[in-house]
């Protein structure tokens, strides 16, 4: 990650725009409290934290630059959603779909774009509209399956 993914501007721009980055070497003695607090078991292990230290999103495993950028942006959008910042979540999910439409994170972004729109305006029809797009654009994704009850 330090040699391939993190040096790329497409990654650092997103990381710096939304977060204060913190690295923890899991081999160091002084890392033990953080390892225990966040139940860390395997690297790479990324967490998005609120300012009180509570975890809002996580993912494991190496990702190349474009996939990392898409996943991080999707994660920051989800953090916004969980903080009830619906309009900002919509903006960031939309950015995932505009910039990284073929990424592994894109189906999740489309699923939760509908959720953010619904939470902002429960009277609107945006949830079904976005989920209908999910059926067409990402038919084999897990996120399509997660909304498949409306296809019955």
């Amino acid at each position: 990650m330090d040699t391939v993914t993190y040096p790329e501007t497409i990654v650092s721009e997103i990381v710096d725009r939304f977060s204060i980055p913190l690295q923890c070497n899991n081999q160091e003695e002084e890392a033990r409290p953080l390892v225990a607090r966040y139940h860390h078991v395997w690297t790479p292990d990324l967490r998005i934290l609120d300012t009180d230290g509570s975890e809002l999103y996580r993912w494991n495993g190496y990702l190349p630059p474009e996939e990392f950028a898409a996943r991080a942006l999707c994660g920051f959008a989800h953090a916004r959603l969980r903080m009830l910042q619906y309009a900002q979540a919509e903006e960031e999910y939309s950015e995932v779909l505009r910039r990284f439409p073929t990424s592994y994170a894109a189906p999740e972004a489309l699923y939760f774009l509908g959720v953010a729109q619904y939470r902002r305006d429960p009277q609107g029809n945006d949830l079904r509209k976005e989920w209908h797009k999910l059926q067409g654009r990402y038919p084999s994704s897990e996120w399509r399956l997660k909304q498949s009850f409306i296809e019955q």
Binding site: S12, L22, Q27, I48
Partner: peptide, 30 residues
């Protein structure tokens, strides 16, 4: 270039001041 912080409390304080989140990356240098 990402400027990684090393201490959680420092990162949380800075995130609060800048209205950002903290991105925590556990890594193994080996």
């Amino acid at each position: 270039m990402i400027h990684w912080r090393k201490h959680l409390e420092e990162a949380l304080d800075e995130a609060g001041q800048q209205r950002k989140f903290v991105l925590l990356d556990f890594f193994n240098p080996g």
